[in-house]
Amino acid sequence: SDEELKKRIEELVRRGNKDEARKLAENANSDEARKWWEKLEQL
């Protein structure tokens, strides 16, 4: 689900694993996940 995906992306970003988070968001084929990633990346 998008919610689970967003949690995983956020967790990866928090751990400093941005590349992994980006790949996850891009491969998810989910606009919501991509937007979430872009938002987190700004922080």
Results as ranks from 00 to 15, higher is better:
Val13Lys: 01
Trp37Met: 07
Arg22Ser: 06
Leu24Arg: 01
Glu4Lys: 08
Ile9Gln: 00
Glu4Asn: 11
Lys18Ala: 11
Ala21Arg: 01
Glu10Leu: 14
Glu11Val: 00
Asp2Tyr: 13
Glu20Met: 08
Glu26His: 04
Glu26Asp: 08
Glu41Cys: 11
Val13Glu: 04
Leu12Met: 08
Asp2Lys: 08
Asn29Cys: 11
Asn17Pro: 01
Gly16Ser: 03
Lys6Tyr: 10
Asn17Ser: 10
Leu5Lys: 02
Lys7Gln: 09
Leu40Thr: 04
Glu20Lys: 05
Glu3Asp: 13
Arg22Leu: 08
Arg22Ile: 06
Asn17Arg: 14
Arg14Cys: 08
Lys6Pro: 01
Ala33Thr: 15
Glu20Trp: 00
Lys23Cys: 14
Glu32Lys: 06
Lys35Gly: 13
Arg22Lys: 12
Ala33Glu: 07
Gln42Trp: 05
Asp31Pro: 08
Lys35Arg: 13
Glu4Trp: 08
Lys7Glu: 08
Lys18Gln: 09
Arg34Ala: 06
Gly16Tyr: 00
Glu11Trp: 00
Ala33Trp: 13
Glu10Val: 06
Lys35Ile: 11
Glu11Tyr: 00
Asn27Pro: 02
Gln42Val: 10
Arg14Glu: 09
Lys7Leu: 08
Arg8Glu: 06
Glu41Thr: 15
Lys6Asp: 02
Ser1Pro: 13
Trp36Ile: 12
Ser30Lys: 04
Asn17Ala: 12
Lys7Val: 06
Ala21Gln: 02
Lys39Pro: 03
Lys18Met: 15
Leu43Ser: 10
Lys39Asn: 14
Arg15Gln: 14
Arg15Leu: 14
Ala21Ser: 02
Lys23Pro: 01
Leu5Ala: 02
Lys35Asn: 13
Glu26Cys: 06
Lys35Ala: 13
Glu41Val: 15
Trp36Asn: 05
Asp31Ala: 11
Leu43Pro: 06
Asn29Trp: 08
Asp2Cys: 12
Glu32Met: 10
Arg15Cys: 15
Arg15Asn: 14
Glu38Ser: 00
Glu26Pro: 02
Trp37Arg: 01
Glu11Arg: 01
Glu20Ile: 06
Lys18Trp: 15
Ile9Trp: 02
Asn29Arg: 10
Lys6Trp: 11
Ala28Lys: 03
Ser30Val: 05
Asn27Gly: 11
Arg14Asn: 10
Glu41Trp: 07
Ala25Gly: 04
Lys6Gly: 04
Lys7Phe: 06
Arg14Pro: 02
Leu24His: 02
Gln42Asp: 07
Glu3Val: 11
Glu3Phe: 09
Leu43Gly: 10
Gln42Met: 11
Asn27Lys: 10
Asp31Phe: 02
Glu41Phe: 07
Ile9Tyr: 02
Ala28Tyr: 05
Lys18His: 15
Arg8Gly: 02
Ser1Phe: 15
Asp2Met: 15
Glu38Tyr: 00
Lys18Gly: 09
Glu3Pro: 10
Glu20Gly: 07
Lys35Leu: 07
Asn17Gln: 14
Ile9Leu: 10
Leu40Lys: 00
Ala21Phe: 02
Glu3Arg: 09
Lys39Thr: 13
Trp37His: 02
Glu10Thr: 06
Ala28Ser: 14
Asn27Gln: 14
Leu5Ile: 07
Leu40Ala: 06
Glu4Pro: 06
Arg15Val: 13
Ser30Asn: 10
Arg34Gln: 12
Leu24Gly: 02
Arg34Trp: 13
Leu24Met: 08
Ala33Arg: 04
Lys6Asn: 06
Ala28Leu: 15
Ser30Leu: 06
Glu3Thr: 10
Leu43Cys: 14
Leu12Ser: 03
Glu20Thr: 05
Arg15Ser: 14
Glu20Asn: 03
Val13Thr: 02
Glu20Pro: 02
Val13Cys: 11
Glu38His: 00
Ser30Asp: 09
Ala33Ile: 15
Val13Gln: 03
Leu43Val: 09
Asp2Glu: 12
Arg22Glu: 04
Lys39His: 14
Leu24Cys: 09
Asn17Leu: 14
Arg14Lys: 13
Trp36Cys: 08
Lys35Glu: 15
Lys23Phe: 05
Glu4Val: 10
Ala21Glu: 02
Arg22Ala: 06
Glu3Ser: 10
Asn29Leu: 14
Trp36Val: 03
Lys6Thr: 05
Glu10Met: 11
Glu20Leu: 10
Glu11Ile: 02
Gly16Leu: 01
Glu10Cys: 15
Asn17Lys: 14
Lys6Val: 10
Glu26Met: 05
Val13Met: 14
Lys35Pro: 02
Asp31Val: 09
Ala25Met: 14
Lys18Tyr: 15
Gln42His: 09
Trp37Pro: 09
Glu4Ala: 12
Leu12Thr: 04
Ala21Trp: 01
Leu24Asp: 01
Glu38Leu: 00
Asn17His: 14
Asp19Thr: 09
Ala33His: 06
